[in-house]
Amino acid sequence: MDILKLKGSGQAQTTSEDKVAKPEISSLASVAADRSESKGDFVPRRPGAGLEAKGVHAWFGKHHVLANVSLNFPSGTVTALIGPSGCGKSTFLRTLNRMHEFIPGAGMAGEVLLDGTDIYKSGTDVTKIRLKVGMVFQKPNPFPSMTIGENVLSGIKLAQLKVSNKDDLLEECLQRAGLWNEVKDRLSAHGGSLSGGQQQRLCIARALAVKPEVLLMDEPCSALDPGSTLRIEETIRQLTESVIVVIVTHNMQQAARVSDFTGFFLSDGGPGQLVEVASTKEIFSRPKDERTEAYVTGRFG
């Protein structure tokens, strides 16, 4: 399989000739705001900051599910991972904060560099990695034994962090997750009493409370109604000020709306691989690979 590998920010810019030469093939191209123009010469706040996957492979037992994925996630960006079911997007996501190894029989190869250091280096404290690389799951999973407030601050207690003012943190995280106004009067109610969309935003607030550098989102809106989805997308856009966001989604509009870069994964029976990665605008208007084009225009998958 011919894999087209592109480094996210480096190749994100396109020339004006390209735009003239190829008409936009996807209606989503107009949705995808061309953020890459401004992020093209993006300078990371700290040198070496950011997350980078180098030649990542993954196995479940003897089953090779993901092969040779290299992807760069510069700070201040949102990257969407798209592709048909079973192409290894979620598995790849879970290798980025070492949740992959939570599954019995899991195996991996390659490097994942967080701020220049391989998170799989022996002797690494895995809890510190997961503290820096937070995760929001597909199904909202607030802790049932805790109240809304306790849920948000649960990461602080679980990871035994010290916080000077818990009330401020609580409000800040709920504000950032777009949930504060709805729950500020019932912080001591149980998390399970919220609607599905509210629960998911509660989970986002919970993930933000430990101040992660990266937030991984595994189809966070797949069970939500359009209103909640929109709010979470707004939240994601606001998060980019301080957090790198990587989002797996089956919703092409969502990828177009929220992401700066988009990676397309595909499996043709073998392990899933990264077919193409480029600025979101480019993926939805002038993808270089014809399989990407077929996928984003809805002709297969």
Binding site: R130, M135, F143, S154, L158, A159, C203, A207
Partner: peptide, 11 residues
């Protein structure tokens, strides 16, 4: 899910 959520928070 709950175990994963806890571990993913750095616990």
């Amino acid at each position: 899910d709950l175990r994963e959520a806890g571990v993913a928070l750095g616990a």
